[in-house]
């Protein structure tokens, strides 16, 4: 086995997350799929850090984690704000900009 195998897993997880973002209708599930994509990208960074023998990839993964944490906080606050006004967490209901 070589460390590139981790990249395959990361690629598959990223792809599955992308399908989830498109297919699922519940805003929270869509958000969780975005988290899955971010994690897959992080796994790639850590794997390349190991392949290249430097810690730069791990530092970048660390920054990505912080950004992901910020994104979760703001995104969930937006979901709550939408839920409060529309009583629904479905992304199809929040289509006010279309009309």
């Amino acid at each position: 086995m070589n460390p590139y195998n981790y990249l395959y897993v990361a690629g598959l997880l990223f792809t599955i997350g992308a399908i989830g973002v498109i297919v699922r209708r519940n805003a929270i599930v869509v958000f969780m799929c975005i988290e899955l994509m971010l994690n897959a990208a992080n796994l790639t960074l850590v794997t390349f850090s190991r392949i290249n023998g430097t810690l730069e990839g791990q530092v970048t993964a660390f920054f990505t984690m912080v950004v992901a944490a910020c994104e979760v906080v703001v995104g969930l606050a937006i979901i709550i704000a939408i839920y409060r006004s529309r009583r629904s967490a479905s992304i199809d209901d929040a289509s006010l900009l279309k009309r």
Binding site: P3, V9, L43, V46, Q58, A61
Partner: peptide, 15 residues
């Protein structure tokens, strides 16, 4: 666990 196995112990715990 993948992080910890790949010598990224700190990131594994943070994860």
């Amino acid at each position: 666990l993948f992080y910890i196995a790949q010598d990224a112990v700190f990131l594994g715990i943070v994860q």
